[in-house]
């Protein structure tokens, strides 16, 4: 095993980690916000809004992310309206396009996950909140959202890991994140296995950290599901 080559590769790849993390963080953030909007439309009771949300979810979950990303990156620039608008300086940036398409895509998946969480909120708890006079945003903020989010968290964790993997696609619109750099190294050195190993290790480490953080969050949010704290008794267990 060529330790020198491996460590050199590792160093090169680690330099690309910040790019991967920025892609990841921005798209999870904006994707999450967008997902909330879509869920709100989906359950709004307004047939037009619900229909739009349904269509949105269908389109973004039903087609590959890569084609969505190419549509944003190559397709939008085709229109004069966009080319000559104030948005163009942003939209011609590969990074912006990558984040935009990642966020649009994850919003479709996350919206479905959040909706499943909402449906798991027991009706009687909503009724109890209404009974003490809660409604509207207060009801959402204090009762609906916390319960729904707790229910959705396991599935959302999976989606977040999928997002981490999806950031790799940004390399195909010339954002040099970890996978892109790895591909360049492979085509320069033809040492596929070694480069793959290093890159895989980086992704597995990132996933591990994210999953640990999420399970900590899950633990913190499930006080009510744990056994009641035992009174300080000296009984050894």
């Amino acid at each position: 095993m060529d330790i020198a080559f491996l460590s050199q590769t590792m160093l090169t790849l680690i330099k690309a980690v910040p790019t991967t993390l920025i892609l990841f963080a921005l798209s999870v953030f904006f994707g999450g916000l967008l997902a909330l909007l879509i869920v709100w439309m989906r359950v709004s009771g307004n047939r037009l809004l619900a229909g739009f949300a349904r269509g949105y979810i269908f389109v973004f979950r039903g087609s590959p992310l890569l084609i969505q990303m190419f549509l944003v990156f190559y397709g939008l620039g085709q229109f004069g309206v966009i080319r000559y608008s104030f948005l163009w300086p942003f939209l011609r940036e590969p990074m912006v396009c990558a984040v935009l398409s990642l966020a649009l895509c994850t919003a479709g998946y996350s919206a479905e996950i959040f909706r499943a969480g909402l449906r798991a909120v027991p009706t009687r708890e909503i009724e109890a909140a209404r009974a003490i006079g809660m409604s509207g945003f207060l009801l959402v903020r204090r009762i609906l959202a916390p319960i729904a989010f707790r229910h959705a968290l396991p599935a959302y964790s999976t989606e977040i890991v999928l997002m981490m993997k999806s950031t790799a696609l940004a390399s195909l619109v010339t954002v040099w994140e970890v996978t892109g750099v790895a591909q360049r190294l492979i085509s320069q050195t033809y040492r596929t296995m070694e480069v793959f190993l290093c890159a895989a290790l980086i992704y597995l480490a990132l996933n591990f950290i994210i999953l640990q953080a999420l399970s900590l969050l899950e633990y913190a949010l499930s006080k009510h599901r744990r056994a009641p704290p035992t009174s300080p008794s000296p009984i050894p267990r």
């Binding site: 890991v161 950031t167 790799a168 085509s187 793959f196 890159a199 895989a200 597995l204």
Partner: peptide, 18 residues
């Protein structure tokens, strides 16, 4: 763990180039 945790693109590179 590896094949669900590593980007698909990377695995395609591994198989194609490797």
């Amino acid at each position: 763990t590896v094949f669900r945790g590593v980007p698909e693109l990377l695995i395609i590179y591994l198989i194609y180039f490797g």
